[in-house]
């Protein structure tokens, strides 16, 4: 029974993931409400409601224009909030991270497992919303399924961003800074509810720095079958941000756990 060698990085990350999955299985109903039902309500209100007053956007219906953004937006919120409020509890209140570190687990393993979990929960949401929307015929083209890897990539980024802020904040209240100051503006101004061209030029430039802009743009392109250079740029931008942020986050998280 005793393991002959230390668990590998992958095994350690998987065990962190499995703890969250175990807990998720107990509370899935409450999760479904916010990760699947809530986005469907938004789809109903904006896609059908508001959308019926909006003429075509870029040659598609508003519903078709909005749906890829809804997926990217929802997964961003799920990944980010899973890695902030829930994980700040493990860092401060229950000290679960400290307990985990009494085993061969290292801070990087914890971080990797939590990011994978945050992104996985976001994917449960994306797949749930997608299945229902497909059944309702609200999606336009089923090609959007091919965009799931991009949505996963973007979810990993926002899960990591959540972990970075979790390692920085002193209390729950301070999570308001990144959520209201960063995540909400991103969700509004990343070509989600209206095309970027509707904004002044200067703001458009800023919007192109938003990772969500690139996730939405890539998802829309895949949905419409436009496999262009822009799609490559979108994906490359997301990968670059993910890699760049990983070093900063790893350092910050480790410093928070081991003084």
């Amino acid at each position: 029974m005793k393991s002959l060698s230390l668990p590998t990085t992958w095994e350690s990350m998987r065990s962190v993931w499995s703890r969250n999955f175990l807990q998720f299985r107990k509370t899935w109903l409450v999760s479904i409400f916010w990760i699947v039902l809530e986005p469907l309500f938004v789809l109903g209100a904006l896609g059908y409601g508001l959308g019926s007053y909006v003429p075509q956007v870029h040659g598609t219906s508003y519903l078709e224009f909005f749906f890829p953004a809804l997926l990217c937006n929802t997964t961003m919120l799920v990944a980010f909030f899973e890695c902030t409020y829930a994980n700040f509890t493990k860092l401060s209140h229950t000290k679960l991270y400290h307990t985990a570190l009494y085993t061969p687990m290292m801070p990087n393993h914890l971080l990797g497992g939590e990011i994978l979990w945050g992104a996985s929960k976001a994917m449960f949401s994306a797949v749930g919303v997608l299945i229902i929307a497909l059944a309702l015929g609200a999606v336009g083209s089923a090609k959007i399924i091919l965009a799931l890897p991009v949505i996963f990539l973007s979810s990993c980024f926002f899960a990591m961003l959540g972990m970075l802020f979790t390692s920085l904040v002193k209390n729950y209240d301070q999570i308001i800074y990144p959520s209201s100051g960063l995540i909400v503006p991103l969700s509004l101004f990343s070509g989600t509810y209206f095309p970027l061209e509707a904004m002044p030029k200067a703001l458009q430039v800023i919007a192109y720095l938003s990772p969500l802009t690139h996730a939405v743009s890539a998802t829309r392109a895949i949905q419409q079958g436009q496999f262009s250079a822009m799609l490559v740029i979108n994906i490359a931008f997301l990968i670059l941000l993910l890699v760049g942020l990983s070093r900063i986050t790893a350092r910050s998280f480790e410093r928070r756990l081991i003084d």
Binding site: M1, K2, S3, S5, L6, P7, E11, S12, S15, V16, S18, R19, L22, T99, A100, T103, P104, M105
Partner: peptide, 14 residues
Amino acid sequence: LIYSRYLGFQGLGA
């Protein structure tokens, strides 16, 4: 169970 996974133990033995 979770803690024994952190330690690298799997399966029925664990």
